[in-house]
Design a protein around this nucleic acid. Structure first.
Length: 331
DNA sequence: GACTCGTGGGA
DNA sequence: TTCCCAAGAGT
């Protein structure tokens, strides 16, 4: 269907490039499963720059898989607070308990894949980076690099295209150096084969790239799906009394941002006497754009479901980012 | 297969 | 400002 690249020459060029160009990142200074796992989960749909400070703090607070397994959930969530995709944190604790019960990390792809929150990508990443097993990763970077290399016109959000690219990734994999190869192709996607502006002149795979040969690198990968945004107006109240703030906690069982603390909203606290507007801001969660208005308010007594929380304790609680912004904190 | 889940940064 | 997106996984 498409011209097949010279995989042997391409993987050699990629390896040479990676040896000179790779960034010095903390999780690249070890091959221990625990810290690598933490980094892989944090980096899911998250940029390196955003994850870095969280990574350092997380490992200080939970230096071992045992420490994570035993951590109080509120403490775990408060460390993760601000990073997003909070089910990642809850799944990590589930997985940590699975690992402790097993007596250590599984050393096979299938074993890793069976842990909570570990899908095909993370299982392949851990299997290759920690244990040298020949499993190719397929993430957004790899899909972009391969879609361009092959000038694959398929929609990368479709499973059919993903299967085809996964097969290509496995064929491309350097079977004797899977750890370096997997990180190299992702690093290429992150530093050179960029989504909007591919830096083809600096790309070691340029001689092998079908899309570049046709002058169409920026036309790949093809993505069809786009979701519509919905506007949501939200008024939240800052109700303060004697150094305490009125908050409510989302149910811990599940759902979006389970266990997180929120400010009262105009809907949930109808009896409040609303005063001046403290600030306004916009905050997007997935496809919902919240137009948030923050007002000071007062109330006779805390209604059912609300809790007075000492301001000094806020720092150690998982506060939603909307609440943080509403209080004027840096998210 | 389609949807949902967060957030911050860059073009 | 708005849009797209970044080392995905679960339902």
């Amino acid at each position: 269907m498409f011209a097949t690249p010279d995989w042997t020459a391409a993987r050699k060029a990629l390896a040479r490039w990676y040896r000179g160009a790779q960034r010095d990142l903390p999780w690249r200074r070890t091959s221990e499963p625990y810290p690598i796992w933490v980094s892989e989960v944090m980096l899911q749909q998250t940029r390196v720059a955003a994850a870095l400070p969280y990574y350092v703090r997380f490992l200080e607070r939970f230096p071992t898989v045992e420490a994570l397994a035993e951590a109080p959930e509120q403490e775990l969530l408060s460390v993760w607070s601000g990073l997003g995709y909070y089910s990642r944190a809850r799944n990590m604790q589930k997985a940590a308990r699975q690992v402790v019960a097993l007596g250590g990390f599984p050393r096979t792809f299938e074993g890793l894949r069976a842990l909570a929150g570990i899908g095909d990508y993370t299982a392949a990443a851990l299997a290759s980076i920690c244990f040298g097993l020949p499993h190719a990763v397929l993430d957004g970077n790899v899909m972009r690099v391969l879609a361009r290399l092959l000038a694959d016109p398929g929609d990368v959000t479709s499973p059919t295209t993903r299967r085809r690219l996964a097969a290509a990734a496995q064929e491309f994999l350097h079977r004797r150096h899977p750890a370096e190869h997997n990180q190299a192709i992702m690093e290429l996607g992150a530093l050179v084969c960029l989504p909007r502006e591919p830096d083809c002149p600096r790309c070691p795979l340029r001689p092998h790239c079908h899309a570049h040969a046709e002058g169409r690198a920026r036309e790949f990968p093809v993505k069809l799906r786009k979701q519509e945004k919905v506007e949501v107006a939200l008024t939240v109240f800052v109700v303060e009394r004697a150094g305490k703030l009125l908050l409510w906690q989302r149910p811990e069982g599940g759902g979006r941002m389970a266990g997180f603390w929120e400010l009262p909203s105009a809907d949930s606290l109808p009896g409040a006497g609303a005063h001046e507007v403290l600030r306004r801001f916009r905050h997007t969660i997935t496809h919902q754009v919240h137009d948030v208005c923050v007002r000071r308010a007062s109330i006779a007594r805390a209604p059912r479901g609300f809790t007075w929380v000492a301001l000094a304790r806020l720092r150690e609680m998982p506060l939603s980012t909307i609440a943080r912004k509403a209080l004027g904190e840096r998210p």
